[in-house]
Amino acid sequence: MIVITGANGQLGQLIVAELLKTHSASSIAAAVRDPAKAASLAALGVQVRKADYNDPATLDAAFAGADKVLLISSSEVGQRLPQHRNVIEAAKRAGVGLLAYTSLLHADTSPLALAGEHKATEELLRASGLRYSILRNGWYYENYTAGLGGALAHGVLLGSAQDGRVSAATRADYAAAAAAVLNSANPEPVYELAGERGFSLPELAAELSRQAGKHVPYKDLPEAEYKAALLGAGLPDWLAALLSESDAGVAKGALEDNSGTLSRLIGRPSTPLADAVRAALAQ
């Protein structure tokens, strides 16, 4: 039995879909906060179990009979550590054979503020006595491509990354990696996962311009000004802060990795920039 927490999220649904290629639906459990919102997963035949990171009793029930658990990191920045601790303790009580966790690229050395809770969670895993596998996911293309429509409409792509490079991949790429680890008989303790060919935001703007047939330059802003622009676009404060601080980290090399681990793990090249832009413009 493989249990996926946060399984009705954008990444979780893709991981379940990947696992269904190699596992029967009855051997997969989707652990979600609100089972009523997981009808699409139930329709696939997977078990849907209630699991609230803040409620250990629900985690005990969700992990019953689990051989492997994938902890998809909480979306509640600032509350992640106690929530992740609850999951780890429940996994210990359930005696799971493997606890995998979606962390952040180079979490142990990353200058990003976002890395703090991931690094602390990794330390809890190492001290837990459980067999674990840490999936240090790099940046999602979708963090940028979701805003390409706005960039086209306004005629400019904003950011705060200077000429720093981002080794991004799609959620589907990272989902394939998670499934590969869960399917492995002997997974490694830590995987640094990132797209094999990095890009800069000026290069993203150039690719957008090429495919859209419209010149869309990149404009680099100080971090505070970029955050203000994101707030002006309607993003909540926590997300605007996260994206602007992460962009500033890109300028320091925080989201670049040339190890090729992701491609080797999934047995194919990670998605190239041009394909990610094309998919975003087709939506």
Rank of each mutant, 00 (worst) to 15 (best):
24 S>A: 15
205 A>D: 08
127 A>C: 05
53 Y>N: 01
33 R>P: 02
86 N>D: 11
178 A>Y: 07
251 A>F: 02
32 V>L: 07
253 G>L: 12
166 V>T: 15
195 G>I: 01
132 Y>N: 08
31 A>C: 07
277 V>H: 09
98 L>G: 00
188 E>G: 10
65 G>K: 04
210 R>N: 07
21 K>T: 13
95 G>D: 03
267 G>Y: 06
36 A>G: 15
209 S>E: 14
202 P>A: 04
43 A>D: 14
143 N>K: 06
12 G>H: 03
170 T>E: 08
251 A>E: 04
97 G>V: 03
93 R>C: 12
87 V>N: 01
132 Y>E: 10
233 A>C: 09
170 T>Y: 01
126 R>Q: 12
2 I>V: 15
255 L>H: 11
31 A>V: 05
65 G>Y: 07
39 A>D: 10
238 W>R: 13
186 N>P: 00
49 R>A: 14
134 I>R: 09
141 Y>G: 06
133 S>E: 06
115 A>M: 09
145 T>Q: 14
132 Y>G: 05
160 S>Q: 06
84 H>V: 09
37 K>L: 14
141 Y>V: 06
79 Q>A: 14
64 A>K: 15
240 A>Y: 09
220 D>E: 06
199 F>V: 13
240 A>L: 10
109 T>H: 10
197 R>E: 15
264 R>W: 05
150 G>I: 02
209 S>G: 08
201 L>S: 12
109 T>A: 09
131 R>V: 04
124 L>I: 04
94 A>Y: 05
92 K>T: 11
100 A>D: 11
92 K>G: 11
54 N>K: 13
140 Y>S: 08
87 V>A: 12
93 R>S: 03
22 T>M: 12
120 A>V: 12
